[in-house]
Amino acid sequence: MFLSAGSLKDVLPLVEEMTRGPGKSLVRTAALVDSTLLALGALLARRGVGAFSVLVLALGAVFGAGILVFAIRRARLESRVEEWKRAGRATVAGEAASSSTDYSDRYRDAAPSDSHEVVVIDGAPRSDEADPADDRARAARAEAGLRDTWMPRIDAAQRSAIAAAGGVVNAPYLRDDLRITILSALVAAVAVPVGSFFAILAVLALL
């Protein structure tokens, strides 16, 4: 697999921040090209050009749907990454505030048997409770298997990342299906050159 189990949860926020500016520019450029294409298609239909006008309008509709989905998904991904960052900062601030708490009075009169149980195996102390991080790692590896679906590697990487994060509550940016986001981004990217080409042909047909 192109991503190790669960690594997407750490990589995706960085990728989103790096591509935020280009993503916004792509949405604006693709929307402008597609609007022009649709307007030219409408003019061709009024002129009675026929099949070519239908083709231009159909391309404009397909590209427009993809651009709209990408714009919504991109904005939602940005919002959820920022939400995750704010939650992380709040957690760090809370831990820093609680780190100075003095617990000495709590255990002053406690007997040794009242302390937390620690099991020592091969000289290494281990808590009597399972480590949540280990549980998440095992769950991530279990979810890393490919399924019979479209874009199986993206699907497996996202499922693994959600399991490694302990659920979408801890990684809200993984809530949406990344396959749809990626596919709509590809449609938006293709819309710029292909839409421009057909717009030029439409202008020539109107002359």
Rank of each mutant, 00 (worst) to 15 (best):
A188N: 00
L178P: 07
G166K: 02
D155M: 06
A199K: 04
I200E: 13
V187H: 04
A171S: 00
V187I: 14
I200T: 12
L201S: 03
L174K: 10
A156E: 05
A164S: 14
I162C: 09
T181C: 06
V194Y: 06
T181V: 12
A171D: 02
I162N: 03
R179W: 04
R179H: 05
V187T: 05
L178V: 10
Y173H: 04
A156F: 11
V169R: 15
L178Y: 04
V187S: 01
G195W: 11
S160E: 06
A202T: 07
L178C: 03
I180M: 10
D177T: 10
V192A: 06
V190N: 02
N170W: 01
Q158W: 03
I182V: 15
N170T: 00
F197E: 13
Y173F: 05
F197Q: 09
I200R: 15
Q158A: 10
V194H: 06
A157G: 07
L174A: 08
V190I: 11
F197P: 08
A188L: 00
Q158C: 04
A171P: 00
A156Q: 04
S196P: 09
A161H: 13
A188S: 07
R179F: 07
A189N: 00
D155Q: 11
A199N: 02
V168R: 10
I180S: 13
V194W: 03
L183D: 00
V190W: 11
R159T: 08
G167E: 08
A199E: 00
A171W: 02
A157M: 07
D177R: 13
V192M: 06
L201N: 15
I162V: 15
P193V: 00
D155C: 05
A163Y: 14
V169Q: 12
S184Q: 06
I162H: 07
T181M: 12
L174Y: 15
A188Q: 01
S184C: 04
S160I: 13
G167H: 12
L201T: 12
P193M: 09
V190D: 10
I200K: 15
R179E: 08
V187P: 00
R179P: 06
T181W: 12
A202S: 15
P193Q: 08
P193T: 02
A171Y: 02
R179D: 08
I200N: 13
L183K: 03
G167Q: 11
V190G: 01
V168Q: 07
V190R: 07
S196R: 14
A185M: 12
Y173E: 03
S160D: 09
S196D: 08
G195T: 01
G166L: 02
V192Y: 09
A185E: 02
A185H: 01
V192Q: 05
A191P: 05
A185T: 01
A199C: 08
I162T: 09
P193F: 04
V187A: 07
L186H: 08
A188T: 01
P193W: 09
L183Y: 00
V192T: 11
D176I: 05
A164T: 08
I180R: 05
L186C: 14
G167V: 10
A157Q: 04
I180A: 11
V194N: 10
A161P: 12
G166S: 05
P172N: 10
A161C: 11
P172G: 02
D155I: 08
A189E: 01
L201C: 07
F198C: 05
A164K: 11
L174S: 12
R159D: 13
